[in-house]
Nucleic acid binder design. Structure first.
Length: 279
DNA sequence: CGGCATCCCTGGGAGC
DNA sequence: TGCTCCCAGGGATGCC
């Protein structure tokens, strides 16, 4: 599922359910997802209190008492569901946290991580290590934060001979953009996905930066994009799928000029664009 | 360092 | 209906 907007919908759903609440029970159904889970994960989580729920790129960072962070990445097929009664666990429900107002109070919520392909991952580490964490330390700025601008894009694209589409997917340059929103942002900026990243400067960089921000914000408003796996934690689908201009629309008319949308493969991933508007 | 191919894994849909 | 094949929103890794 999950690019920045989908992960943000997860964060927004989790925050009010978790903050200042305790883990009264923890079920961990296997010892690895993409990588081995932290040893004794269930025991380490039991009795802990959540302080706040943040997001960084495509990661959810759940802050725990004792200055720890519970990190979650949903990979390609992961989803979080929140229930108020104990749900039956399915084959791919790997982790369930029982949430309560105190470690021994009766449950208020059940938070379940489902991930059929198991490309997701989970870690627990001291908050002090966040900046040095292997998976976080090289991540680029948040596109919806203060560190992102056309000037930033131009700077990180400088010298890059590869296509701008690939550069947008590079989490070290900008955090949180995945295959859907890379195509969408490029369409809204009127830039071909094949254009060499280094040539996105000046007005083009301005248009792209603005399109990235606008596209991501609109998708968050709609609860993300549901193609096959993504559901919001309350079970709602993400409605941005109805607003996709090019992604998944090969052969359909461009909404601006009616030219058929084209699909190409770049570094093994599909890209969609209008050959006329994004010449 | 940049760029590309490969790999991890399961399930859904297309095509026969 | 049932089988096979291909594809999928992620990123680490290793090779050139």
């Amino acid at each position: 599922m999950p690019e920045l907007p989908e992960v943000e919908t997860v964060r927004r759903a989790l925050a009010p359910v978790l903050e200042q609440q305790f883990i009264a029970a923890a079920f961990v159904g296997r010892d690895d997802l993409r990588w081995p889970l932290p040893e004794n994960l269930a025991a380490r989580l039991l009795g802990r209190r959540f302080t706040s729920v943040d997001r960084r790129g495509k990661y959810v960072l759940m802050h725990l008492d004792q200055q720890d962070i519970l990190l979650l990445h949903l990979g390609m097929s992961g989803s979080i569901r929140i229930y108020d009664t104990p749900p039956p666990l399915g084959k791919h429900d790997h982790i369930m946290l029982t949430i309560a107002a105190s470690p021994t109070a009766s449950a208020t919520h059940y938070v379940v991580l489902n991930d059929p392909r198991r490309f997701g991952w989970v870690d627990v580490f001291p908050a002090a290590h966040q900046d040095s964490h292997k998976l976080l330390r090289h991540m680029g700025p948040e596109p919806l934060g203060n560190g992102f601008s056309a000037a930033h894009l131009q700077m990180v694209f400088k010298g890059r001979q590869g296509p701008v589409k690939n550069a947008l997917l590079n989490q070290q340059l900008i955090a949180g953009i995945g295959n859907i929103y890379a195509s969408e942002a490029l369409f809204h900026a009127g830039i071909s996905p094949r254009r060499k990243a280094a040539t996105v400067r000046g007005q083009r960089a301005e248009r792209l930066a603005a399109a990235v921000v606008k596209t991501l914000r609109a998708a968050i408003e709609d609860g993300g994009t549901s193609l096959r796996d993504h559901v919001q934690p309350g079970g709602e689908i993400g409605y941005f799928v109805q607003r996709l201009a090019v992604y998944g629309r090969a052969g359909q008319p461009c909404q601006t000029c009616t030219t058929p949308i084209k699909m190409i493969v770049q570094s093994g991933r599909s890209s969609f664009y209008c050959p006329r508007c994004q010449g």
